[in-house]
Computed example of a mutant assay.
Amino acid sequence: MRARSEYLDWLIDELAPLGPIRAKSMFGGWGLYCDEAFFAIVDDDVLYLKADDTSRAAFVAAGSRPFSYTARGKPQTMSYYTLPDAALDDSSELLRWARTGFGAALRAQAAKRRA
């Protein structure tokens, strides 16, 4: 298991207004959950927030990059986007974007329940 970083601990504290935040070690990084909704990935001290068709354009417009990795020699991307740079130094912006990611996670959960 990968050791928790100061950055991860800082994020958990900053994101606490969303609700109970749980970090789960996964794939060499961390998955962040709020109320059991998987809404963020932390990899190499970079926060990636869940995006969907409702929120993806806002992340792209803010200059965010998707989470990517290589599998079987081919680049893969997931629908998780970096926190916009402007939100790194502003707690209220961080929470605003985190709520966007949390909203996408809740919509994904609701869609699974309907299926």
Results as ranks from 00 to 15, higher is better:
Tyr69Phe: 10
Arg99His: 14
Ala37Gly: 02
Tyr80Thr: 10
Phe39Asp: 04
Ala57Val: 03
Ala86Lys: 15
Thr70Glu: 04
Arg99Trp: 09
Trp97Ser: 13
Pro20His: 12
Leu94Ala: 13
Tyr48Ala: 01
Thr100Arg: 15
Gly31Trp: 11
Glu93Ile: 12
Glu93Leu: 15
Ala61Glu: 02
Leu49Gly: 07
Arg65Trp: 00
Thr100Tyr: 05
Phe102Gln: 11
Leu83Lys: 14
Lys24Trp: 01
Leu47Phe: 02
Asp52Arg: 10
Phe27Met: 12
Asp43Thr: 10
Ala37Ile: 02
Ala57Ile: 03
Ala61Met: 02
Lys74Asn: 07
Gly73Ala: 07
Tyr33Asn: 05
Phe67Ile: 00
Ala16Asn: 08
Ala16Ser: 14
Leu95Cys: 14
Thr82Met: 10
Ser64Val: 03
Gly101Met: 06
Arg96Lys: 15
Glu36Ala: 14
Lys50Val: 01
Leu18Cys: 08
Ser25Asn: 12
Arg65Glu: 01
Leu83His: 12
Phe102Pro: 02
Asp52Gly: 08
Leu83Pro: 10
Ala98His: 05
Asp44Thr: 09
Ala40Met: 07
Thr100Cys: 15
Arg22Lys: 14
Gly19Lys: 11
Leu18Asp: 03
Ala58Val: 00
Ala57Asp: 02
Arg65Asp: 00
Leu83Asn: 13
Met78Gln: 14
Ser79His: 10
Ala37Pro: 01
Ala98Arg: 09
Leu83Gln: 09
Leu94His: 07
Pro20Asp: 12
Ala58Tyr: 00
Ser79Ala: 12
Leu95Thr: 14
Ala86Pro: 06
Thr77Ala: 13
Gly28Asp: 06
Leu95Glu: 09
Gly101Thr: 10
Cys34Tyr: 02
Ser55Gln: 03
Ser91Thr: 15
Leu106Ser: 05
Leu83Ile: 09
Asp44Glu: 12
Val46Arg: 14
Gly103Phe: 07
Arg56Trp: 00
Ala105Asn: 08
Ile21Thr: 07
Tyr80Gly: 12
Pro66Cys: 05
Gly19Arg: 09
Ala23Asp: 06
Cys34Asp: 02
Asp45Gly: 09
Asp44Pro: 00
Lys74Tyr: 05
Tyr69Ala: 05
Thr54Ile: 04
Lys50Ile: 00
Met26Ile: 08
Pro84Met: 13
Ala40Leu: 08
Gly101Asn: 12
Ala16Glu: 10
Leu88His: 15
Glu36Cys: 08
Gly31Gln: 11
Pro75Gly: 10
Phe39Pro: 06
Gly31Cys: 08
Leu18Val: 06
Tyr81Glu: 08
Gly101Lys: 09
Asp53Met: 05
Leu95Val: 13
Tyr48Glu: 03
Pro66Ile: 04
Cys34Lys: 08
Thr54Glu: 06
Phe27Gly: 06
Lys74Gln: 13
Leu94Val: 11
Leu106Arg: 14
Asp89Arg: 15
Arg72Ser: 07
Trp97Cys: 13
Thr70Ala: 03
Lys50Leu: 00
Arg65Leu: 00
Phe39Ile: 11
Ala87Trp: 11
Glu93Pro: 07
Ser79Pro: 04
Phe39Asn: 07
